[in-house]
Design a protein around this nucleic acid. Structure first.
Lengths: 138, 138
DNA sequence: CAGTATCCGCCGAGATACTG
DNA sequence: CAGTATCTCGGCGGATACTG
């Protein structure tokens, strides 16, 4: 790891490896990261709070994603050595700055998802259920 | 998501299924979508232009992702029935509105990726290569 | 409570070959 | 040139069992 060095993950060709948008999506593009940021949007929460708030998430993925965010310096983890252990998660300063761009995306989503759904329906009707659909939809 | 069937994938509980941020990430969170939007940022391009600009992408993924964007109404496809066929891709009006939030993310990325990398290094040194790393990094 | 450790299925994505 | 059609593999993410 560490890998500020040598290999940029690619096999031989530089496909916009310098593109920071790409880097950030590698980071938050997964299934759960932004949901966790959302759950920590306005305050801290403990592990089981998060499990309950996000609810579809497994312990494994919650732990794993939180570790990633902690490693990235976006989430802070505090262990309270009480009788049943208590662990608090909070957005760091850097993590809080992520909320603005995320909010922008969210607003785009709210504003346009209706149109997108309509467009999809029209498209599917025009070419009735083509075989190649990646089921990005539904 | 939601898989082919009626069931919303969840066993009984709604894990922020109404969260539009989630919906939008299902859409642009994949490997290539935003790179294509980036390649169409300030104008149209033909299929092979896109292949060359993005370069790491396979024909399959380029076609597939373009189809998705077209279906979503974010990209317009124009076929010029010339001798060797020529196909132009352009962002639609809706697609162009996506550039702003994407730009916001990109700027966040530029501003913070350095800190993130540093945080990762520190984290990895503190717990030297823990077994659970999802290799989100690199 | 807040995790770790395993096993496994699914599908995103690449490689390759063929077509209008 | 601009695609389609298959085969295949890696690894993300779920399920389950165990622990400090």
């Amino acid at each position: 790891m560490v890998t500020t060095s040598t290999e940029p993950v690619l096999h031989g060709s530089p496909y916009s490896a310098d593109c920071p948008t790409r880097r950030i999506l590698d980071r938050i593009g997964d299934r759960w990261t932004v949901l966790i940021v959302g759950a920590l949007w306005d305050g801290s929460a403990r592990f089981s709070d998060l499990r309950r708030r996000i609810e579809g998430i497994s312990q494994k993925m919650l732990t794993q994603t939180l570790r990633g965010l902690e490693r990235d310096g976006l989430v802070h983890r505090t262990v309270h050595p009480e009788v049943p252990v208590r662990v608090e998660y909070t957005l760091t300063e850097a993590g809080r700055t992520l909320r603005e761009p995320l909010r922008a995306l969210q607003e785009w989503s709210i504003a346009h998802l209706g149109d997108v759904a309509a467009s999809q329906e029209a498209y599917d009707q025009a070419n009735q259920l083509p075989p190649g659909s990646t089921d990005r939809d539904k």
